[in-house]
Design a binder for these strands. Structure first.
Lengths: 209, 209, 209, 209
DNA sequence: CATGAATGAGATTTCATTCAT
DNA sequence: AATGAATGAAATCTCATTCAT
């Protein structure tokens, strides 16, 4: 019997999930044992099973958490005063943490898992959809994008933004361990600005001859 | 004692690796057992060990194979008559196979694994470097890019191309199983052309005002 | 993660080691499977690993136990009222158990293992040193040995005693299964007395001629 | 079908057995694979099976070889001009080889194996019997032993000699690898002479008071 | 004859999960 | 509630043995 969803229970859940994400990011889902998680959380193994039916549910819960974080990220991006700033927020999302590699490792593993675990796939697909829609909206509403974008529709731009975003995330698992959060953040800002320039600053480029 | 590298042995190796990539793509590295691979390859478990020291070596061999394929892909892209065609080749690489999801699942898992397994990380990092350099070169040499690119240097463009490429690949693991290779290919071509338009067709757009 | 060293845990350890020594004596270290041990102990295989890191650690623990037993044996020998009685204790040590062949088989295998496993070698070497020193002391302190011993120094005598002791032990693995503990004990006492006679009773023999 | 016992076949057998004893001494019977033996002998695995039905037969053949060697050793001891020299030959038998640890490791393992493998047990028991009888004879015929031996019967002396011999052999597996054959030989000679002194030189010791 | 490719049973070890306390 | 002892299925890897070439 799983524990009821009281506030205290939610705290427990969070505690377990926080430990889990650390382990998962470091060793991957399937090389992390339940014991690893319990040790990281400072609780007993059996305890985890009071709050999660099994290991897959822990993964699923984390995927759900990821979905929520993405929703919050979108919200923050939406409230930025300019579109460039929105982009900057989106592109550096996984660098604001004190452990950027942790997040990216986890997310890449999540996608890998989605490739085979239908439950995870459904959630991740949902995240992707939410992200794309949110950013499409963001672009469409921006006064910046009135006449520009090289004639591309907002949703195509949005897809490209996320392709770039996911692509750099995927690659960031290769970043040497010594690379600081700040350094990674800087790299990501560069990418955001490059894209920005491509999309909106074309005119500024001196017309060739 | 591993088998010597005769031609017959190389055939066996290939046979095993082909089976392994199918299993890995379907279930991930760590949820594929050596028995799964042997069953898929139609041989006995022990036999795999005559050709690969252990499971990690199978993964590493596959990663090395990936590296070689990327090198060939670059070569093909290099020989395309126009830069746009080069782009199209690069962006649809994983769709030409009869099993596009297989390839992408494998590659995403490979990146996830690179986040923890240093041997794999080294190989993947190598692949990334080769890719980026190759495409940087491709762009720099192209007559198309003489005065355009919105003032961005070729290597920054190259990085962006691959970010997009990897990003779409990462996302493609979510593609519903029923999506055909042709459909995916079409999507990828769209992305390639969007990027192309962004990079090189800007001038064509009537300057607002 | 190994279980902590509580009293209950120590009981478990003992239970496992007792089962292990039975199996090892009967089939040797390398022909005893972990499953054999678990079956003999009446527990599950995996459970052994909560108490011992691996099979080698089981062997090492048993070797350590042997060391302790030898130390106790020496103590008992030391407290015997006469040197002859000390000898008798030393020579019959492995016969007092209800399973003399068990002990000898185990010890011979332990020496065989010491020839290749450095960890075991270190322990066995330690046992040998302790034994030799202890008996050297025993002899040196004995009033019996004041002027006799055929002019041989105590440590040479001690070495010989243990050579004989180990030699008979080594041979005792050949004793037919039906040979009772009592019979073996009697044989060993004969050896002890023969040695004693050789060392100390020489004078009583009528000088030839 | 095993190969017939022609002279050429016997050569093959010897070649295999020589390789086997090296492997067995180094790693023990049950940690030596048939492949190890074939590699050491420079032949194929399958080839071994033409000359020996299985691994156990290889061990048995080696045990039989040991028996023959012991018979030859006894013959040499018998032909020595004095009893002391006979002793010296017996005690240093395993040191004359260029690999003393090899022989002792093998013999100790052989005894361990005898504790469980009845076929081996029978052979080893036979060896022990042959040895004891031979030496009993040796002593009984020696003019040295006419009136001495502290009143002990020759067969008891013989048993003791072999106990010592086996005991030192058993212990010699602990000799550090760097100990040379010559050093070990010297040690063994010391033991032989100590025993000799004990048995026959008692008279020389000044009778105390 | 001789080889070594091929097998598959079996060994060691791990780990998700349960349950008595 | 919370623990962690206990299980046993399953994974990785080895190796004696066979047999087609």
């Amino acid at each position: 019997m799983l524990a009821k969803r009281t506030e205290a229970a939610d705290d427990r859940r969070r505690q377990i999930l926080e430990a889990a994400v650390v382990c998962f990011a470091e060793h991957g889902f399937h090389q992390t044992s339940m014991h690893d998680i319990s040790a990281e959380a400072g609780i007993s193994v059996g305890f985890i099973y009071r709050y999660f039916k099994n290991k897959d549910e822990v993964i699923a819960a984390l995927a759900a958490g990821h979905k929520k974080e993405i929703a919050q990220l979108l919200e923050r991006a939406r409230q930025a005063p300019t579109l460039l700033e929105s982009f900057e927020i989106l592109f550096t999302s996984h660098c604001t943490e004190d452990a950027p590699r942790l997040i990216s490792s986890f997310v890449v593993d999540l996608f890998a898992e989605a490739g085979r675990n239908p439950k995870v796939a459904r959630l991740v697909r949902d995240v992707v959809r939410t992200k794309t829609r949110g950013v499409t909206d963001l672009i469409a509403r921006s006064p910046d994008s009135k006449h520009r974008l090289n004639g591309l529709p907002p949703n195509q731009i949005a897809e490209m933004i996320f392709a770039i975003n996911d692509g750099t995330l995927m690659r960031s698992v290769l970043a040497p361990a010594r690379m600081s959060s700040a350094q990674q953040r800087k790299r990501q800002l560069d990418v955001a600005r490059t894209l920005w320039q491509l999309l909106f600053k074309a005119k500024k480029r001196p017309a060739y001859a």
